[in-house]
Design a protein around this nucleic acid. Sequence first.
RNA 1: GGGCAGCUAGCUCAGUUGGUUAGAGCGCUACGUUCACACCGUAGAGGUCACAGGUUCGAAUCCUGUGCUGCCCACCA
Length: 1026
Amino acid sequence: MHDLPKQYDHKAAQARCRALWDAERSWHAEPPAPGDTRPVFSIVIPPPNVTGALHLGHALNNTLQDVLVRTRRMQGHLTLWMPGTDHAGIATQAVVERRLLEEEKLSRHDLGREKLVERIWAWKEQYEKRILGQLRDLGASCDWDRTRFTLDDQCAAAVREAFFRLFQKGLVRRGKRLVNWDTFLQTAVSDDEVFHEQVKGHFWHIRYDVIDPEPGEPASVTVATTRPETLLGDTAVAIHPDPAAALDAAERTLREKREQANAKEHAEIDRALDDLAQRRTALLPLLETLAAMARAGRKVRLPLLGRAIPLVADEWAKPEMGSGCVKITPAHDPNDYDVGRRQALPMVNILNPDGTLNAEAGPYAGLTIQKARTKVVADLDSAGQLVQVEDRIIELAHSDRSKTPIEPYLADQWFIRMDEIAQPALDAVTGGAVRIFPERYAKSYLDWLGEKRDWPVSRQLWWGHRIPIWHVDGVSAAELSTAFAGRGGVEWTCDGGSGWHVCSRDESLGVDAVGGKPLVRDPDVLDTWFSSALWPHSTLGWPAATPELASFYPTTTLVTSRDIITLWVARMVIMGLFDTGKIPFRDVAIHPKILDRYGETMSKSKGNGVDPLDVIDALGADALRFGMASMATETQDVRMPVEFQCPNCAARIEQTTQNRMLPRIECPKCKQAFRTQWATKPEDIALPRGPALSERFEAGRNFSNKLWNATRFVLMNLEGFTAGELTPDATAPEAIPLEDRWLMSRLATVTAEASRAIDEYRFAEAARVLYAFAWDEYCSAYLELCKARLADPAARPRAQAMLLLGLDTILRLLHPIMPFVTEEIWQHFRTIAGHRRTPWDASGLPASIMVAAWPAPPAGWVDARTETQFGTFLAVVGAIREIRSRQNVPPRTNVKVAIRAPADTAALLLPMHGSIASMAVAEITAAGPTATGAPGAATAGAAGCDVFVDLADLIDVGAEIARLAKENEKTAAFIQAKQAKLADEKFAAKAPPQVVQKEREQLAELEAKLAKGRETLAALERRAAP
RNA sequence: GGGCAGCUAGCUCAGUUGGUUAGAGCGCUACGUUCACACCGUAGAGGUCACAGGUUCGAAUCCUGUGCUGCCCACCA
């Protein structure tokens, strides 16, 4: 007798399984040997950032990948799952810098580039280890021998080669780009690290005087700004070259819009049209004059500084807005920068990196932006140049890292030109070479890529792939040719002046100087997404022609979250095609984002997150995975209510916006306190920690336990089991018991459904189908039925074999979602049922379920008729139970039952009488078309049968009468509705005949039901009235 | 400003091409532990499918509009 504890111990099982898998190394994949014709399935992990530990989003992402990988592995594919981590440029540098400041009060400048990078590597080592450990805890069956890092030597070689090829083809350009400058941290921050906050601001209208106005010319122009201090960097005032035409165009646009607008929007558009008309009369002549002045090269005087700056004619100035004139600050605004380029204007940078104004600001030099603004406004006012001040709410950009306002300024950057290389990536999706699931996400991919905007790839950071470009000034092309003669892999372009940009395929150029002039390495690093874009081919060895690249590239599927479709997915397609000529993956499976109960994204800083390890610890990795798979629907978000679990009494406390930031929480049940992630004070840290969990993982934990106990039952009843072959159809079909035929049919159907759901990335569907089958059908129905058969020596062997076949199949189908509990059970099977063999096992069973054959029940097992019959049986059992329940019959009191059913149904139920008796604690006294219960028996309908339960003195007649009367009323109401429907001529005429027929049949059934109900009611009433 | 989603039971979500009386898990109510499992069993209550129109014999499902929620992109002199 195989003795198992009553509860599944996930902790012990997980440790055992991981040890087993690591010993077997079935997760490792080698390129196929000659003659190996297995299909290949490969997948590269979206590399988690080494910034910190994994969160629930990673748990979801990796669960889904593992489901795919494990499924394909069992299905006989040659399977590779490439693991690794991402250096995550700015984010990682930021966390290390922050710690440096907090713990040692040092800035990165105190440490220097080399030392800081060393520190970041140390951080990376620590977190990479932690992340990979977490992935293993989750059960991810990655090829751990191949772990890569986006900044390791292999990836670095790929990055340099890719960048060099781009440079060689003229796809790398130098240009200006507005960077988000954090003046507090003195660093550029990415757009993702900028948040906008509405603040009260002003809109200042400032007068710029025209220098020596001629008769008929205005004496001044007025411009407006929310950032008056930037006027110190102004180098022009722009006016539209043809204001009349611009107004016409604006009007046309509005009229077109009006045609498509609804009534409510009309009013708004009409107002705008009125405004345009007014401008035509009030403003147009002036604007025409100004345009002419711009053409004539007239200038205006910059207030405060007195600099003469030109009026320029540029289409950026919109006559329909404001005064029609706009100040141009090329160094501090991206649009103004474009104007500056077009008009060949000087670019005046007025800022120091620390956010103070520099010498260009003249008397304002040294002031902070805020102080300069106040002073500029005051000075303008006293100089009489300030026309008007409006209050206005403005969206002010702030740095997420320092919480200080962002100062935009233009800096030189490297760009990848997208005009050519984006097109193949667009074609890949429109042409169906790359398929995106769910399909709707293809739109955002195509829209974004369709703009073909150049990709700014340089970052003013120290942590990352250093750009392989060197600068040299004042040498000739001939000198460069001589210096690099005989060296392949070096290319150069002129920087537009006297300097050159030299790009090398290698880390070293081989020479330090050209013509006596030093080569200076570009200080910037590449955008972290550059190395990520190469991930599918760089991890497989590109640019080397490795067997891995030949066998596993293009990869099969990419699994990722919807928020990086553009940042990452699109760029992988671009770079994959550019570097290898092949798409990087065939399918892209997009999964939802996990939000908290309020619909907010989870983050550590909000305190609303869940640590996957807490879930694994408290409920098990399988519970986490089952929950994740269940959540992976086709919607774009899922909500997950979070609860703290009191470590003292295990009570659950809802996590709210109020309590989620508290360092300690007092349990309302046991009144004891516990600490949270926010605990910092010693007295808080001393408290036991209350993990944050979610009830959404409990179903998975319970399910594990259910499977465990089903196993206990089967193993307990396996004594004397000898037949190894689990071939249920070896006997003549008619000799197979109904429930076995049913189980065979269900196994075939469920296998097909679950397999298809996984193929189509409908993970939640796969989880739901398997859960319902295992719990409601296998455990609640089949296993219960077998209890009687196991007691019968004649029926026992077959029941044992079938129970085993069913459980074995369920385990295999569930293994990709719940690898630990299924493996643990598989191991327990070895001692007592290790010699079993299913029809889909070509040879003996493997030692681990991880490489067991995926079930393949013959299509011939599917039998719709049997499933219907079995359904009738279950309905009869349900009807008896319902009567028992509503009459409060004690559980072990036997009841007498009559079943009125058509002859064929009664015949089919005949062999099931024993099962009905055992499952419903009933004795069947009669079954057939005329069977009926004792007068006043309680009744219930079930799948075309009527079940009479003779309750003798047990029955509560009054309650039964009331219930039946209510039910009859309900039935009558349905009949009425159906009759009305059928009486409707239009319905009869237009609905398909089979629908009409169905309605008729239903009506007949309902009428029969009502007749019987009334009859029974009358009998009960007779009995009630003595 | 443009786009994409979502709104179904107290909560979190399913609902495949329009067709019986709209489902699941959790929670809730009642009953029940010798007989795999209380992380369990049996039964039950609970929904005007956001709202308003429309198409149709028939709408949670298709169309139009409205409201609310979330996200992505762009822009804001």
